[in-house]
Each structure stands twice: as C-alpha cells, then as structure tokens.
Design a protein around this nucleic acid. Structure first.
Lengths: 220, 220
DNA sequence: CGGCTTTTTGAACGGACTCAAGACGTGTGG
DNA sequence: CCACACGTCTTGAGTCCGTTCAAAAAGCCG
C-alpha cells in the first residue's frame, strides 16, 4: 500500500527547466523523471500545468509515502512546504503563477482542489474496489486521453501498485479488477500502460455502483 | 455508511446571525443546528471560525451525503458552491473574511486545508479502523478539548454513525473500537457524547499502529 | 539472451460489514 | 414521578471483500 522512499528518489530538484515564451506567459518545461522537492518554506511555488502530469505524494513522519493526487493539464498545483514528493511522469509544460497577479484565479483553483480532495475522500469512504478503479479510469481518461474528443486511449502515468496506493488498495487487487473490466469489455489494454476505454456507459455504471447496466451493451 | 438527506435538513440558511463587535473584527454567531447552504455561486463565503464547530458534508449526485471534514476554532472554512451541507454542531462564533483584505492569510489557510484533506486521504488509505479512530480522537481532543491545556475531555460533535461515515467505517465498528479503547484504558466515556482521553501515549501509539507500546502504562 | 521490475493469477486468511437483538438515554405526556 | 416512545449505542454471529503470501508469466532494457 505504501512505498518506502529510497534516498536517491528525493535528491533531484529541477534538473533542467527549459524556458520558452508563448504568448505573454512564460512556459517552462520539466522533463520526465523530475522530482520537485518542497524548497523554501515561505513561498510555495504555484504551477499552472499546461501539459503533462505530476504525481504528488505526501511523506508521513514514519517515512512512508502516500500518493494523494495526480495533476494534469489545466490543474493548478501548489507545492506545499509539508514533506512531500512531486514527480513528473509525463513531460510537463507549466507556468509559474504569481500570487499577486493571479490572485483570483489561484483562489478559485485552490477551492476546486479542496473539492477534488473531498471527492476523493468520498470515493475512499463510499465505494468498493471496482467502483473506485472504474471512477479513476474515467477521470484519468478525461485528463490524459490522447484524443481530446474521444479520450478513449491513454497512457497510464502510474503502476498498478501506485494506483492501489492512491485508492487504498493493493496492486494485486488493481490487477484483478483490470482483468474483470476487460472481461466485461469496459476497457482493453494495448500494452500494460496503454489503456483504452471501450464502453463509457458500462464503465460509468460500474463506477456509480449500478449492478445491472440498463440498455444493451454497445457492440465494440 | 452514507446518510440520505431528508428534505427538511436542507432548508434553513442562516436563521439567526447575531452580530457583535470584538476588537476590529466583526464577529457573528451561528446557533447550534444552523444549516448553511451554498448560496450564490460566484462568491463563496469565507469564514474564520473563532469558536464552535461546523460539520461539512458533500452531496453526491445520487443525493447521498458524505461527511468530509470537521472545522473548529482557528480553521478557515470556505463554503464552496458545490452541492454540500454545512451544519453547526457547537455554537459558532465566526468572522467573514474578505478575499481582498485577507488575501495572504486566506491563501495560506486554503493550502493548509488541502494538506488537511490529503492527510485524511492518507488516513483512509493506510490505516485500519482502530488506527483511524484513535487518530481522529486525538485530533478532535486537540481541536475541541474543554481544557485548552490538557485537552483531555471533549464533547463529541458527531454520532457514532457520523464518525464512521467520516472514516469510511460503519457506526457499529466505531462503537466496537470505542469499547476496545476503553478496555485498553486509552479513553473513557463520561456519557455517550462526553469523551475523556486517559492516556495520550497509548492512544498515540495505537494511532500510529505501534502494536506494543514501549514503556509502562500510566496508572489512570 | 539474462537480469530486472512489473503484472497476473491462485488459495487461504482476516478485518470490517451485515443483520439482528437488546440496552441505554432522552424527551414527552399522563 | 412513572410509563412510554424514539433514537442512539452496544454486542454477537455469520458473511464477504480485499489482503496476504506465493509462484509464475510478461515486459523492459542493458
């Protein structure tokens, strides 16, 4: 469920930060594998993510990492000063927001982030393993789907164990549920990391806990 | 696990809001039982709680309420526009913060609230029933303890079922764990709602998942 | 290919749930 | 003051979902 943090995982901090200018905003780039550490305690940096994926884990006092959120395009990620770990899983194009100039937008984003965390709490409190996984697969597909229209296929930014960690499950359970979802033709796996949503309605019904999905299953 | 919302529970909105002026800040008062509804969508009100207790529940699309957080003295509570329910459980003296004038403080509070939610996610993902309950009892005692120094005794603002809802457990389980904690002399119950922490160390060890607490148990 | 991690699948176990009955507390009316 | 009703709380017995442990298969990269 939880992963011990090996020493070398927490060393790097912004190895490369290639800058480029697009429009008026200054966009910077984090390559895959970058690990952001909580730096100076006073000013928590605020990133508006344009592209890519950041996986955020909290570090408990006992040194155990708990994966708590996955940020994608459009999300605002505030790296708190609390002991934590933010890993770039997909090449990440971002913009650093200034608290003064973007006050209103940052505020609204933070309120949204709180609600997002509360939705996740509700997920953990009220749903079974199958429902949890179906739910996050829908979310991930909408966030990271290759085709912006269908959102059908996506590259999972997490291993099975990490998905389990995020959802309060074990990797084995995630694997079992994936197999079950494939059996029900809700999804399919291209490779282990390439996932394709085959039937949104089925997946959605499973996510909502509807046992018997009304209406016929769509062919392919 | 979840409670259906009966129609009459969501009607009232700020029945009385007695104002009084203390220092420079305008303090208002919510009596016990007040139910705050998400009002106008644009401006989510921001409350700095000086005294009392607000229990915040999210409403899922299926009409099921999920208790997600308990706010107490010193907390900043932003009532989002998302469908939700905020109930005043202990007479609540509060201050409405202006986004302009308290920008910096509000920002820091929101970041803290996100971390608080993430800690709760970690709790749900990584702890057993006993650990979860021991953890929140410590938190509640520190937040709502009658004596600000010892924090030993407190009035629980939640029923067993609600604590269970908050922690992803059933009321029966909460009750069983309470009995077990009493058996271990970690806590005691004066009445069903009046709880007393008898041994902080024991409770803390249980919360952290330490099986065998080092050191002798303190007498009473 | 060889060594590594990740993933899959199975079988047995256990913690929390479910259902049910009874005890306790509290408020109400006689 | 007691009797009663009602909601909350406690406790028990059986069940089930997700875990644990283990082994093998599949990917991945030098």
């Amino acid at each position: 469920m939880n992963l011990m943090v090996t020493p070398e995982r927490r060393t790097v901090s912004r190895p490369f930060a290639e800058k480029r200018r697009i429009g008026t905003a200054v966009l910077e780039l984090f390559p895959v594998g970058t690990v952001l550490c909580a730096s100076d305690p006073s000013g928590c940096p605020i990133y508006l993510i344009h592209e890519g994926c950041i996986v955020y884990s909290r570090l408990a006092t006992n040194g155990i990492a708990q994966l708590v959120d996955v940020y994608g395009p459009g999300d605002v990620f505030v790296h708190p000063s609390a002991p934590s770990l933010a890993e770039v899983r997909m090449e990440c194009r971002y913009e650093v927001l200034s608290l003064r100039r973007h006050a209103r937008m940052i505020h609204e984003s933070l309120v949204e982030n709180i609600d997002r965390a509360h939705r996740h709490v509700a997920l953990l409190c009220g749903k079974t393993a199958v429902q949890r996984i179906a739910t996050v697969l829908i979310d991930l597909a909408l966030q990271f789907g290759a085709d912006p229209i269908t959102s059908a296929t996506l590259t999972l930014p997490l291993t099975r164990t990490e998905i389990g960690d995020w959802l309060g499950l074990r990797g084995e359970t995630v694997s079992r549920v994936f197999s079950e979802l494939i059996r029900q033709r809700a999804i399919s796996l291209d490779t282990n990391r390439r996932l394709c949503v085959k039937n949104w309605q089925t997946l959605s019904c499973i996510a909502d806990g509807v046992d018997r999905c009304i209406g016929r299953a769509m062919a392919i």
